[in-house]
Simulated assay, not measured.
Amino acid sequence: MFKNLMDGIKTQLSRAPEMRKPRARMRSVQHSDSASRAAELLIAPTALMQLSPTEALTVVSYMTPRRIPMDTTFIHEGDKTETGYMLLLLEGEVTVENIVVSRRNPVTVSVLGPGSLIGEMGLIDGQARLASCTATTAVTAAILSRAALEKLSQDDPHTAAKLLLAVSLRIAERLRDTTEKVKRYSQLVQAMQQEIDHLMPT
């Protein structure tokens, strides 16, 4: 099923909106309720608040709609292929999981709903995926590929720059959050070690 999903994504990307002429691309979203909804979700607090509604609609015009069946793992942790895109979750729910060191079963990191971005780091650097993502319900998403981002950069450098800045700010925010968690974990380990040393002096 994963291969079929990836083949579907490849097919979608081969007919991607960045291949259309700019006027035709914008006409396709200007009077579309689904495109307007996608633009609203793109600038939601869970996504990229830094974009204006007009800029968000422009970005949506470069995105490709995609439906993902329930129980499909569409991103696999460690995958180094098919990493050059991100998804905006429009409908449905996605579970994000990690394989923690010394564990065999994945640990749920978060559950994402509409307005969430998935895979934005892959869009920027194309490196291996850091987590697995599974559709826990039927999912509707919009995909922004790296090719579409490059075309957006050529057609509308200002919007592309704001998009990249917004994505970078999201990544930086997550990095700060992770750093805080690592600090708290380190303090907890240190406190536990001090308690162990107190109870079992050497």
Rank of each mutant, 00 (worst) to 15 (best):
F2P: 03
L5S: 09
D7T: 11
G8Q: 15
I9D: 03
T11D: 09
Q12H: 04
S14F: 00
A16M: 04
E18T: 07
E18K: 00
K21F: 01
P22F: 07
R23P: 01
R25Y: 03
R25C: 06
M26W: 12
S28D: 15
V29L: 06
H31R: 15
S32W: 06
A35H: 07
A35M: 02
S36A: 14
S36W: 01
A38Q: 05
A38C: 13
L42V: 07
I43P: 09
P45K: 11
T46E: 13
L48W: 04
M49F: 08
M49E: 15
Q50R: 14
L57K: 08
L57H: 05
S61I: 06
M63D: 04
T64Y: 03
I68N: 11
P69H: 06
D71W: 02
D71F: 06
T73R: 14
T73F: 04
I75E: 03
I75D: 05
I75N: 03
H76W: 03
E77R: 09
G78M: 09
E82C: 10
T83Y: 02
Y85D: 10
L87W: 08
L87G: 09
L89Q: 04
L90D: 03
L90M: 11
E91H: 15
G92E: 01
G92T: 02
E93H: 02
V94Q: 12
V96M: 07
V96A: 06
N98M: 06
V100Q: 05
V101A: 12
N105D: 14
P106M: 06
V107N: 08
V111C: 10
G113M: 10
P114D: 06
L117V: 01
I124G: 00
D125F: 03
G126A: 00
G126V: 00
C133H: 13
T134A: 05
T137Q: 10
A138V: 09
T140E: 13
A142I: 01
A142G: 05
L144Q: 02
L144T: 01
S145D: 07
A147K: 15
L149Y: 07
S153K: 05
D155G: 03
D155Y: 04
A160E: 02
A161K: 12
A161Y: 09
L163S: 13
L165E: 15
A166K: 05
L169W: 05
R170D: 05
R170A: 04
I171N: 06
E173A: 15
E173N: 12
L175V: 15
D177E: 13
D177G: 13
D177M: 15
D177A: 15
T178N: 14
T178E: 12
K181C: 03
V182C: 00
V182N: 02
R184F: 09
Q187Y: 02
V189S: 11
Q190N: 12
M192I: 13
Q194K: 14
Q194L: 13
D197L: 08
L199S: 11
T202K: 12
